[in-house]
Design a protein around this nucleic acid. Structure first.
Lengths: 320, 320
DNA sequence: ATCGAATCATGAAACGTTTCATGAACTTCA
DNA sequence: TGAAGTTCATGAAACGTTTCATGATTCGAT
């Protein structure tokens, strides 16, 4: 910057104000711009960060990026931040509570301007002094949470199954120890079933429990090679996929014998057809909401729960 | 840091040396460590970056993160960097040449310590002054390139098809305008076919060309509802998947009528079974190689092409 | 006991910005 | 024409580190 100032024959402060688009006399601005051009000057973000105490970086705490849902989320969040000239600091927690806490420390030394977290530690201590936004996890009214309309999604799934002719349904999920926003999928589902008089069962597995418990549940509800359910709503697309593989093993056809709806909206290779019929989370809108919330310094007038509408998309595991 | 120094009754420089694990007298070290603990001091990385001119950040230029292969790559690269206390600056190019160039600028102002890029612009000007490593793209001997053994993978695929009883095969790919490392998949495939006396055809599509050209190619090679190939090797898993969908439309069964092998090693939901039978890229090793290469300051004795072994994995689209 | 060598903490300078009080140059109005 | 007001560039200080020359202290050898 000193070089630019010398080249343009002005003071450092003047260069700084040109760079930051502040008011500068016309002829000075011209001269500085010419010098910047000539010398190919690019400001040093470390210097700026040191002086302003703002790094223009937002930490993103997320289990991983190979799960396509997370991959999509990372993608949209990064895009939204980029629009606003911000950067992402990636933190992969791998569902590990200790690592999540470790990251809070790391994030402190990097002086990030805010944190967006999709965490699996319900006892996480949320830093008070850094703007913090969660995805799908409600901690307290002072920590904004962005989620899709999980209740509405469950409700929608039940109505859809009914509309497609199902007579007896079940809801399957994992992670039942966590009471978080996605838990409302079950409530929405049940609510619609009750309303419609549609019989249903629920099987929720704790985190530690083996997947084979679903197999036991399903075989318990089979007789003569027939499943007694003709509609399944499953907590996530990934679980839905696994359940479908399981059903195949028993010769139960999807969607002919049983129709299946998942949740998330995962596409094949992230961009082709939906893997299963599903309730699609509005990932882009979620990303946008996270970013604009975390960047609004005045978190006072921000709602503590931002709930975004979902939609249904057929994916070959239902008869539509 | 000044607070810590005051608390411990030592000079700033001493604190600095303790933090950086340099030689400090025993009693001073103790005192400083106690003060750090008491005050919960975390160093400020902007200040350090400014002073040392090293940001501990590596830029990663990649098309996106929702494609599961890229997602996996981002994941492993981040993990490898984290082990070494480095951070990632994410740059999503979306296959767009202009954005790739734009990022090079951005990366300059962030003073990254190095760049890892999976780029789609063969004319990209590689910055001379920043350690630069590419994935799958060979630019020149002065720019190290990390790739899997594409030739070997193609060769392996042909031999596998032959071993599984195929009599007539074809190789299909897109992106034929780019001559990059993955292009060698074709050469390896052909090489093995020639060696084995296995008949083969090749269909390569340019980037602009519509997908339906593959449909034309396949229908041209059908008669009486039968495809004249009984083995297909396809440039990527994603393309393989699409081709399989296409075959389904014509009532051709996989793997009964034709066996298909893809390339990349994409799993369902990033962690379940392989989507198609495939040549698996060693993503973790690729990540490790990229990271260790980009971090070795002395790029002189580093090989300009690092080629890592692939392996075959069955995924239900072959008869094994 | 004295001197030289070795060890190691100190204090100041420097990294590249932004910001703020200062003062120079110009404008307006009587 | 002169005073008061306005605009806007200047220069210095500050942000939190690391590093280097300096000097204090300790130790060993004579």
């Amino acid at each position: 910057m000193a070089d630019v100032a010398r080249e343009a024959g002005v003071a450092l402060g003047t260069v700084s104000r040109v760079i930051n688009g502040q008011q500068v006399g016309e002829k000075y601005r011209k001269r500085v711009e010419k010098a910047v051009e000539k010398l190919g000057y690019q400001y040093n973000s470390s210097g700026r960060a040191l002086r302003t105490d703002r790094t223009n970086t937002i930490a993103l705490i997320i289990p991983n990026t190979y799960n396509p849902y997370f991959g999509l989320l990372v993608h949209h969040i990064n895009l939204e931040l980029e629009k606003r000239n911000k950067k992402v600091l990636l933190c992969f927690s791998g569902y590990d509570r200790n690592r999540e806490e470790e990251y809070i420390r790391l994030v402190r030394q990097n002086r990030v301007d805010g944190i967006i977290a999709l965490t699996y530690n319900p006892e996480l201590v949320i830093p008070e002094d850094i703007p913090f936004v969660t995805i799908d996890r409600f901690f307290s009214v002072s920590v904004p949470c962005v989620a899709s309309d999980n209740f509405g999604g469950g409700y929608m799934a039940a109505r859809k199954l009914a509309e497609l002719g199902c007579r007896k349904t079940a809801f399957l999920r994992t992670g039942s120890t966590l009471t978080n926003e996605p838990s409302k999928r079950k409530e929405g589902f049940i609510s619609a079933c009750v309303e419609l008089g549609l019989p249903y069962e629920v099987k929720a597995l704790d985190d530690g429990m083996p997947f084979s418990d679903f197999e036991d549940f399903l075989t318990d509800h089979m007789s003569g090679g027939k499943l007694e359910f003709d509609g399944l709503f499953i907590g996530t697309d990934m679980l839905a996929w696994r359940i479908i593989q399981l059903l195949k093993k028993y010769g139960i056809r999807v969607p002919e014998d049983v129709q299946v709806i998942g949740f998330d909206g995962i596409r094949m290779f992230g961009e082709l057809e939906y893997v299963v019929s599903t309730i699609v989370q509005p990932v882009q809108e979620i990303a946008e909401a996270c970013v604009s919330t975390v960047l609004s310094r005045h978190l006072s007038n921000v709602p503590s729960l931002i709930c975004l509408p979902v939609r249904y998309a057929p994916g070959g595991t239902t008869r539509d």
